[in-house]
């Protein structure tokens, strides 16, 4: 399953683990913010439509 590295293995896993953490975290934050903003806008638009009728 996991490739066998020489003695530098822990450094390689640390680098890629950190990369997954930073990039994954960045993507998660950006997408969660986008979802929150979209929901807020949709909620306000729906309220306006109801008030209009």
């Amino acid at each position: 399953m996991f490739p066998a590295f020489d003695h530098t293995g822990p450094y390689i896993w640390a680098a890629y683990g950190l990369a997954a953490l930073v990039i994954g975290g960045l993507v998660a934050i950006v997408l969660l913010r986008a979802r929150a903003a979209r929901r807020r806008l949709e909620r306000l638009q729906a309220e306006d439509r109801e008030a209009g009728h």
Binding site: V30, A34, A37, R40, L41, L44, Q45
Partner: peptide, 19 residues
């Protein structure tokens, strides 16, 4: 990511304009 963040920004502005 930039496009998503820009979309977020535009949607937030529209929501603020509605308020």
């Amino acid at each position: 990511l930039s496009f998503t963040a820009m979309r977020t920004d535009i949607m937030a502005r529209r929501a603020n304009a509605l308020l």
